[in-house]
Design a protein around this nucleic acid. Structure first.
Lengths: 162, 162
DNA sequence: TCTATACTTGACTAAACAGTATAGAATCCT
DNA sequence: AGGATTCTATACTGTTTAGTCAAGTATAGA
């Protein structure tokens, strides 16, 4: 139950495109530089986002990437579906039979409802955050998400220790 | 953002121990058989749960595993901490600097609050479910979690298609 | 058409996860 | 003490993820 690197970095690349110029494509090199990633890795992630239908691209001089629809209409859920697949695959039970031919818990599994609840909670939460909002900065996002804004952030707390 | 196999299977092994006889240890072979897992894999997962402090064990004839505290006092969050680590590591930002020496978003990251919200939502939800409940079966858990009980379960919906 | 630019594709290496195999050590019973 | 039982510890193989590399192709402009 880890956040994948490509979910983090892929989302960051997508945010760069969303935040880029609206009249022309944004080049991979600019995106990579802005996020401190290698050009090659950014290219890989951007390609994945293109294949997933969130971006379009053009090659050649003044080529680059742009969004297929307005940033306000792309949810974080959409992005993570493309970048990391689902938390709980539809075939999860079929994929975890252990050594049996089908999962022995199939008929009465107390765990399954819990995974499903998590999945639906994540969907609920992330479907309602769009990538335009994420570009508005940390304080805006904290406020938007109903989180405490100042000292008690986990990150700041760590920084204070040192 | 996947559920790890060891989180699913490890939790299942833990549930078997919780559901086992209270007057004597439960053998790996019984646990493995009950969940349809290989003895070796079960042993690996149970060992991890022991090292994580949720189980104790004894070797030899009539040896096996037992809980270190009552099942009602072991939350799913506790189990997943041992089995899968955290969703969002405390060092997450430090671990994702890309090619830079430290993450370029460090001072103002719109994404971080969102990951933190997910982490705390998961903790909130999973800390309040204990492993004794999970052994009460699917219908009980659905009711317990405020989920629809019958036809509109994802799993049943899939089954009905075929 | 030639060329520089910038994305595309597939292959490749290293690390983490999934699951298996095996020799070893502790416990109980006789 | 001896031996069967059952957990322990480490190593090993295959698959997925992380990230890099290099050769190729499309585009714009001269």
């Amino acid at each position: 139950m880890h956040l994948l690197a490509q979910e983090e970095y892929g989302l960051r690349c997508l945010l760069q495109v969303a935040n880029g110029p609206s009249d022309r494509p944004m080049a991979i090199s600019d995106i990579a530089e802005a996020e401190g990633l290698s050009l090659e890795y950014s290219a890989k992630l951007l390609r994945q986002l293109r294949i997933g239908g969130l971006l379009e691209s053009r090659r050649g001089v003044s080529g680059g990437y742009w969004l297929t629809r307005p940033a306000e209409e792309i949810s974080v859920w959409d992005a993570l579906q493309v970048l990391g697949g689902t938390f709980l695959s539809e075939a999860f039970c079929e994929e975890h039979p252990g050594q049996a031919t089908s999962c022995l818990r199939n008929s009465n599994c107390g765990i399954r409802p819990m995974w499903e609840l998590i999945e639906s909670s994540l969907r609920e939460l992330l479907s309602n955050v769009n990538i335009a909002e994420l570009n508005n900065g940390e304080c805006c996002m904290r406020e938007r998400l109903g989180m405490p804004v100042a000292e008690d952030s986990k990150h700041l707390a760590i920084a204070e220790k040192s």
